[in-house]
């Protein structure tokens, strides 16, 4: 390893389960993702104050810097910000598509001691990804396998959870697809032949197959037209009301954040610049960037 900049600013230890507020399922502390060699100046020389994400000293890109937040069961956290602000990086680190450079994310599921997602061995990490966390990507191609049927895509998660009865698997897949309003007559069709909205609904069905504790939604509706967007958002709201699932919604669309999330964070240049109750942020933005964001939508 290179002399990796342990970031210059303060550094918390992993929070023990008892120091986390009750009801929290995911406690993220100081999560930083660097692309490049890293140097002690990286975090000081980047961020919203200087309006850049590339360290002028070593050329490292700081994708997200010292991200800290708690996610409670049944709550929905929105992350809003311009493209390149690090929103998706946060989700990708949590889901395990990539790993952060430093930081801790403690998963607190029922009856289990807190587990740091970033230090689990690959086999356990995969179990968390299969059982505890579901992810819906911006483009269906990232979340679905186009070479297998829609039902097979949902079945993949169930098979990972060691379901070994075709009838039960098909019943469960049908139940999920039906709830997502995907016609059952198309269950054995290839997702490539589906409309964009239907592909996204299959993706949601797949993400929910094993009843995860946390659902990550990454720009889920960005590629859809407005009426289809509304349908998908309705479905997510139904899921929120029916279950105790914790959701993180990433979007550059303030309307989506307002509709779905109770609390929100605003990101810019890899940093969180403002956080709080969603309505409050949108009605009374404090940070200049949030003010710009809100005013550009309202005007």
């Amino acid at each position: 390893m290179t002399a990796l900049a342990s970031p210059a600013r303060s550094h918390h230890a992993a929070p023990a389960a008892e120091t986390v507020a009750p009801g929290v399922v995911l406690a993220v502390r100081d999560m930083t993702k660097l692309y490049g060699p890293g140097c002690p100046e990286c975090l000081r020389q980047t961020g919203p104050a200087v309006n850049r994400t590339t360290c002028p000293v070593c050329g490292t890109v700081v994708a997200c810097a010292e991200i800290t937040f708690d996610l409670k069961a049944g709550a929905t956290l929105g992350i809003v910000g311009e493209s390149g602000s690090g929103k998706t990086t946060v989700l990708r680190c949590l889901y395990g598509d990539t790993g952060p450079t430093t930081g801790v994310a403690t998963l607190l599921t029922l009856g289990q001691p807190g587990r740091d997602l970033f230090t689990l061995d690959p086999q356990d990490r995969r179990r968390v990804r299969n059982f505890d966390i579901g992810m819906v990507y911006q483009t269906p191609r990232q979340g679905l396998r186009f070479s297998i049927s829609a039902g097979g895509n949902v079945a993949e998660r169930l098979l990972a959870a060691e379901w070994r009865q075709i009838k039960r698997i098909r019943d469960r897949a049908a139940e999920l697809l039906d709830r997502m309003e995907v016609p059952l007559s198309r269950m054995d069709d290839m997702p490539a032949n589906f409309s964009g909205g239907m592909q996204q609904r299959v993706q949601i069905a797949k993400a929910l197959a094993n009843e995860p504790v946390i659902l990550l939604l990454d720009e889920m509706t960005s590629g859809l037209d407005v009426s289809v967007q509304a349908g998908v958002l309705d479905l997510v709201q139904e899921i929120q009301h029916e279950s105790n699932i914790a959701v993180i919604v990433v979007s550059h669309d303030l309307g989506v954040i307002r509709l779905l999330s109770d609390t929100a964070m605003v990101m810019k240049n890899g940093c969180i610049v403002e956080r709080g109750v969603t309505d409050q942020i949108l009605e009374d933005p404090r940070h200049p960037y949030t003010q710009l964001l809100v005013s550009s939508v309202n005007s």
Binding site: P122, Q123, R126, N130, R145, I148, S149, G151, G152, A155, E156, R157, L159, A160, I166, I169, R170, D188
Partner: peptide
């Protein structure tokens, strides 16, 4: 990682 779900999906698809 004993990540065999795709193998199982291939068998599922075969049966379907």
């Amino acid at each position: 990682e004993a990540d065999y779900s795709r193998m199982w999906v291939a068998l599922y698809e075969d049966i379907v």
